[in-house]
């Protein structure tokens, strides 16, 4: 055998597996209603907290959730970050704000984009509202909401975030 032959030290191994995935009941119900332009969470029968998106259970109590509660597309900023790197597969250009938002009527936050805002003045307690895509583009996806934009409403005090009544925060 030749001494100077080039040794193999690495190989490329393509591993592509096909799946047919079916969303869980709670997710399916949620996304079906998002397709209609509605945000519908589920209330825990034990602790009364409203989960959005619903997962079919209250993770805290470990009980199934079935009661549906429509919540507003107005939210309060619970926390946020300004991101300077692109999201794989997402066209949004950095820097952009992603925030944990608690919709009026729910007790838990979900992550979404914030836009039409001054990145430097985004803050906890800030009021925001969904900017939906045109109805004809709605699909089974949260990005039916293009992003959230600031509302001209007073801030929710820090200690009340996630605890305001179902009807939403009104001054």
């Amino acid at each position: 055998m030749s001494e100077e032959r080039e040794m193999i030290t690495g190989i490329e191994v393509p591993i592509y597996l096909k799946y047919h995935f079916t969303a869980g009941e709670a997710t399916a119900r949620f996304l079906s209603q998002v397709r209609q332009g509605k945000l519908v969470g589920q209330r825990c029968p034990s602790c009364n907290n409203v989960y959005l998106p619903p997962r079919g259970s209250c993770a805290a109590c470990g009980v199934a959730t079935t009661e549906e509660v429509e919540v507003a597309d107005k939210c309060t900023v619970e926390s946020f970050t300004i991101v300077y790197i692109p999201i794989p597969g997402n066209p949004i250009q950095p820097p952009y704000v992603i925030a944990n938002l608690i919709p009026d009527g729910a007790n838990i936050s979900f992550i979404h984009l914030l836009s039409e805002c001054d990145n430097d003045t985004v803050h906890r307690g800030q009021r925001v509202q969904a900017v939906w895509k045109p109805q004809e583009e709605w699909d089974y996806a949260m990005d039916n909401i293009r992003y959230f934009k600031p509302l001209d409403e007073p801030d929710v005090p820090s200690e009340s975030i996630g605890k305001v009544p179902v009807t939403g925060w009104e001054v």
């Binding site: 995935f21 969303a23 997710t27 399916a28 949620f30 996304l31 998106p53 970050t81 991101v83 999201i87 997402n90 992603i98 979900f110 992550i111 979404h112 984009l113 089974y140 996806a141 949260m142």
Partner: peptide, 8 residues
């Protein structure tokens, strides 16, 4: 599919 969360 159907993952409702934005992933950053």
């Amino acid at each position: 599919p159907f993952s409702p969360h934005l992933n950053a």
